[in-house]
Amino acid sequence: MRIETLVPTVARVEEIRQETPDIRSLRLVFEDEDFKSDFAFKPGQFCLISVLGVGEAVFCIASPPQWEDFIEVSVKEVGKVTSAIHDLEIGAKVGFRGPYGNWFPFEENFGRSIVFVGGGIGLAPLRPLIWQTLSKRDRFRDVYLIYGARSVADLVYKDDLKEWSSRDDIRFTKTVDPGGEDETWDGEVGLVPQILEKVSPPSDSVLITCGPPIMIKFVLLSANKLGFRPGDVITTLEMKMKCGVGTCGRCNIGNKYVCRHGPVFTLEEMEKLPNEF
């Protein structure tokens, strides 16, 4: 039983994968057996990872709930805490708080087609949902995945990508930005929103997207162009967070706290938010 809202539990770094030159994935195992057995989350939720003495930062949980013994987070080196995480070695201990926030709809979309659109490290929040969707594949109609990065070197989860490419129950299109291709590249070359329009999935599908803000902006425009309903277009928002539970007061967009009412929002909900994100 944890007695404090803001006090983390200890997790051990069990595995480190260098995804790209500046992105690492960490596999974490909780030390506390009770915490470990009680732990449950849904794709889309996030957590806070602490490097003790440095601080805490927010990450989405990047592994699906059915991988029960551990969780994974992917960390791009951008600031103080993320740099400290990049310096960690296998066996290091970190603090973990979570899961926090809302999650992607799942059962609600049974019987429909799903379109995943990811860019760069933005595949991280989608990854657990993709695996979850594939684990209940018969409950969905078509499943599309469009994923791109600046260059071949910037593509994350290369093993996952390989598996998804080889499966015939997911229509996977990969792309890199023009100039980001190399001689071995067998995917598309072009920006993610353009590829989305080219693939042109049926507009009665649910579209779930995550990536850099500029990509999301254009994906939303493309989704609109393709005729998707704003209520069927889903993304996650990122704001500076400290507490994760809606009390520290800094992640609000209007009266919504991204940590508590989000991070998952539909385009329909986003259209009602003031323009401050």
Binding site: L6, G53, V54, G55, K242, C248, R250
Partner: peptide
Amino acid sequence: HCFDIADEAGASRG
């Protein structure tokens, strides 16, 4: 009531 959370650190303890 807004607040920040920060580590006031020593090298190994804090």
